[in-house]
Simulated scan of single mutants.
Amino acid sequence: MSRNNYSIGMILIAVAVVLLLGKLGVFHFLGFLLWPLLILVPGLLLHFLFFNRVLPAGVLVPGGMLITYSLMFFFCNLFGWHAMGYIWPGFIFGVAVGLYEFYIFNRDSDRNIRTVSIVLAVLAAALFLMMILFKVGIYLIALLLVLAGILIIMRKPRVW
């Protein structure tokens, strides 16, 4: 058997496997689940180019934003897009991450950049806590009422 026949046979088998996997929906599932990689890879690439001294520190702002957003999209792909109702403050947090990275790794950065990034991070955290409180607040109130009732029942009564 010649090498040429062996190579052609392996190529035909590989094409058949790819076609079968495509027909079974494997590529559709992977594309549906892993599309945030299209956002994560450029963010990682910007960081890689900065740390190899190819690009200036300014690329860390969009790089940090892209990585943060891709992590949010992965989370939504895994747990459902209704979760975006809770984690939307992450878009503000992404800007804070990018600005903070710029402040840390740029020697000539102004302290105001750090202040803005911290304010944005605190704002994002406050909005996230507000969203959690609005979404599950009734359950928290119910839990506190049950705990208060148990404490009242368990408390030893004083002599009347």
Rank of each mutant, 00 (worst) to 15 (best):
S117D: 07
F32P: 00
A16D: 02
L34V: 05
I11G: 09
M131H: 12
G25V: 04
F50P: 00
N52G: 03
W35K: 06
N106S: 13
A14N: 03
F79C: 04
G85Q: 07
W88Q: 02
L129Q: 02
D110S: 14
V119P: 02
L144K: 10
G64L: 03
I92K: 05
S117C: 07
V116P: 01
R53Q: 13
M1Q: 10
G63D: 06
Y6Q: 14
M65C: 09
I113A: 03
I118M: 08
S109Q: 06
L30W: 11
L46T: 04
L147R: 09
G25W: 08
A125V: 10
I132Y: 09
F27W: 11
F32S: 14
S70T: 03
F91S: 08
F29M: 12
V119D: 03
L145M: 12
E101L: 15
W35Y: 15
F105H: 15
L151H: 12
A83W: 15
M154N: 13
N77M: 08
L143W: 13
V61F: 05
W81I: 01
I92L: 15
V119I: 15
G9C: 06
L40V: 05
G31A: 10
L120D: 04
P36D: 04
F79V: 09
K156F: 09
V122N: 06
L24T: 11
L78V: 13
G9R: 10
K156T: 11
W35A: 01
G98K: 01
D110C: 05
S109R: 05
A57H: 07
F73N: 00
L40H: 07
F29K: 10
I118L: 13
V159S: 14
L49T: 02
G9D: 08
V159R: 15
G98I: 01
G25A: 08
A142M: 10
M154Y: 12
I104L: 13
L71E: 10
M65Y: 10
V61K: 01
I138Q: 13
L34K: 08
I104V: 15
F74C: 04
F50C: 02
P157D: 14
L30T: 07
F32C: 01
